[in-house]
């Protein structure tokens, strides 16, 4: 597979604290990679390291196929748009002037400014000072700046934070559309499981600086496996016959079974004269999985 970002042993230490601890990221090209973790898990620190805004204590970073070092950092970042934490802008300059700075620094043609404003629907307010923008507009201006020069990769840190519900929906739609519409790979962080579930194709889950899961969203969903829960006329006897089953409040929870094994189990119980009284399917929710992996209640 083609990766836009990979890291090896990426680590950041602040004194005793290790906000990012030997992380091996792998962000596949051409999709949305959701970087999920509770507040304080190390998402921002990781993304800042990818952009060279924070210096790693240890480990290496490769972006767009090149190993990043202090010499080539800015030339690689010419193809990377970013939005980290709160919006970043010059308040006394208009939206257009803010983008002019980006244009000038990246040697882009004049037309890019209008295109970028258009993409985030700020065309009508291009000549207003950014300080007078609402948070949502500032955030959109940040996206416009990130879009300048048609990046191959966008690194977005909690871009929906602080937006109103309509703004959130709009931002999510925009992010989801980036790979198909502009061919941009997106790495987007969030502390909201439901958000990542909505927009991402791949998921990395970070907990206290450690990457505890990294795979496709589908693989995460697959973890929410179905299990059979039984109540029988003789739970003790049934448990003796099915040693892998677990007791839970008068129920027997079977491990995940193939159809054949499930059939064999029910026949076995019938042969031994144990009747099945109740039967249900238990499915772990994504929230349960998130809770297991991060030790934190999923925020929705």
């Amino acid at each position: 597979m083609d990766y836009c970002i990979t890291t090896e042993n990426l680590t950041k230490r602040y004194g005793q604290e290790i906000p990012v601890n030997h992380i091996h990221l792998a962000v596949p090209a051409g999709a949305v990679y959701g970087f999920l973790g509770p507040n304080g898990a190390g998402k921002t620190t990781t993304m800042k390291m990818l952009l060279g805004l924070v210096h790693p204590t240890e480990g290496s970073i490769s972006v767009l196929g090149q190993n990043v070092n202090e010499k080539n950092r800015l030339s690689i970042l010419r193809k990377v748009g970013s939005l980290i934490e709160s919006p970043s802008y010059y308040g006394h300059l208009t939206a257009r002037e803010n983008l002019e700075i980006v244009r000038s620094l990246r040697n882009l043609p004049k037309g890019e400014i209008d295109e970028a404003l258009d993409a985030v629907r700020l065309t009508g307010t291009g000549n207003k000072q950014a300080a007078k923008f609402s948070l949502g507009m500032k955030q959109r201006l940040g996206i416009a700046a990130a879009l300048m020069g048609r990046p191959k990769l966008m690194i977005l840190d909690e871009p929906t934070n602080g937006l109103d519900p309509a703004g959130i929906q709009e931002m999510r739609k925009l992010i989801k559309s980036l790979p198909a519409q502009y061919g941009i790979t997106v790495m987007v962080s969030s502390h909201l499981l439901s958000e990542i579930d909505q927009i991402a194709d791949y998921v990395g889950i970070i907990r206290k600086g450690e990457l505890v899961f990294q795979d496709t969203l589908a693989a995460l969903h697959a973890k929410s496996n179905c299990r059979l829960a039984l109540r029988t006329s003789n739970n003790e006897g049934a448990a003796a016959l099915l040693p892998k089953a677990k007791h839970a409040e008068g129920w027997l929870i079977l491990p995940q079974l193939t159809d054949e094994k499930a059939a064999a189990a029910s026949l076995l119980l019938a042969q031994k004269g144990i009747g099945i009284v109740r039967m249900e399917v238990r499915e772990k929710s994504l929230e349960d999985i998130f809770l297991e992996m991060t030790g934190t209640e999923a925020a929705l």
Binding site: L51, G52, L53, L74, L77, R78, V80, S82, L83, I84, E85, S88, Y89, Y90, I101, V102, L105, R106, G142, A145
Partner: peptide
């Protein structure tokens, strides 16, 4: 502003 500026 530096957070964006220093990527450029």
């Amino acid at each position: 502003a530096l957070r964006t500026l220093f990527t450029m």
